[in-house]
């Protein structure tokens, strides 16, 4: 049995490798093939692809559009009745970093700031190696250790559970960065991608629209430069009834997002029915980013 399992995994990995090589156009075909192979051989990997529909119920054709409806429904409620959460299906994440890049683009992040890095672990030694990709946005903890330490109360948890930074109040002491067990927060040093080139490139001057304001980068001493920055679950997009950019962009549909307080939402069903875990559970921070494993 053990040997069989190993071989199946190897087959599966090589198939994934082929799929990756095959490129984006071919991938649906290949993944279908992989799916068939899996359903017959590797029964312990549940819901590998497309199986979420089995328990979601309701009428829909596109899960992202359905989650967008969830967001719009939630936005009609008072803020304190919403509880935003995210679930990331690590079985689906291929480690392409599309979310990382889309987030940087959406929030016009400068060099050295990344709200959604993807940690890539290699487990085992060659030739028995497997990879694990773990996207790591802000966990938007229920009990955030980062907010209590702020000397001026510039960072706090909103009523809807999103942990934010008031850019106009943050003094840039960086104490919160030391307090975050997930090492999420980053400091804006005022750098440009085009530093060292004859002129500042236009893309470097693009403003960020975080917190529904326009933040320019013209002056090295103005916010958000000199501030601590972090993922906001794209609060400015939610306000417009849009999903966070990382969820929208994910090529594998590995992200689920919505209002945990809404039992009909995709996220509530995913978190309650699938095998989810959180990072560093022992800290008691109660992250609202769940991982499906």
């Amino acid at each position: 049995m053990g040997k069989n399992k190993k071989e199946n995994r190897r087959n599966f990995l090589s198939m994934l490798g082929t799929a990756a090589l095959g490129g984006a156009i071919l991938s649906p075909v290949l993944s279908k093939a992989a799916n068939t192979a899996l359903s017959s051989n590797v029964t312990e990997i549940k819901n590998f692809e497309g199986r979420i529909e089995d328990f979601l119920g309701g009428d829909y054709t596109n899960i992202k559009l359905r989650m967008q409806d969830d967001v719009r429904r939630a936005m009609k409620k008072p803020a304190k009745e919403r509880k935003w959460a995210m679930a990331i299906d690590l079985r689906k994440c291929v480690g392409c970093n599309a979310c990382t890049v889309a987030c940087i683009s959406e929030n016009a992040l400068p060099p050295g700031i990344v709200y959604r890095p993807v940690i890539k672990d290699e487990i085992g030694t060659y030739p028995n190696v497997s990879k694990r990709n773990t996207p790591k946005p802000c966990m938007h903890c229920e009990n955030p250790p980062c907010t209590d330490v702020c000397p001026v109360g510039a960072t706090f948890k909103r009523e809807d559970g999103i942990v934010v930074v008031d850019y106009e109040a943050c003094i840039g002491c960086r104490y919160c960065m030391t307090a975050c067990p997930y090492e999420h927060r980053m400091f804006d040093f005022g750098e440009h991608y085009s530093d060292g080139l004859p002129a500042v490139a236009a893309y470097d001057e693009r403003p960020s629209f975080e917190y529904e304001k326009e933040w320019t980068r013209e002056n090295k001493h103005d916010s958000p430069i000199g501030n601590v920055r972090k993922c906001t679950f794209c609060a400015h997009r939610l306000e417009e009834g849009l999903l966070p950019e990382c969820v929208t962009t994910c090529i594998g549909g590995a992200n689920y997002f919505g209002d945990l307080n809404d039992p009909d939402s995709v996220i509530a069903k995913v978190v309650s029915k699938l095998n989810v875990s959180v990072l560093k559970e022992e800290f008691g921070t109660e992250p609202k980013v769940f991982y499906i494993t």
């Binding site: 209590d148 330490v149 702020c150 000397p151 001026v152 109360g153 510039a154 109040a169 943050c170 003094i171 840039g172 002491c173 960086r174 104490y175 400091f187 804006d188 001493h221 916010s223 000199g226 501030n227 601590v228």
Partner: peptide, 18 residues
């Protein structure tokens, strides 16, 4: 990060938690 906001530690301190 923002030297000129240092006064905030007096005007809006996050006490008693910080």
């Amino acid at each position: 990060g923002h030297m000129w906001r240092a006064y905030e530690v007096i005007t809006r301190p996050n006490l008693p938690s910080s």
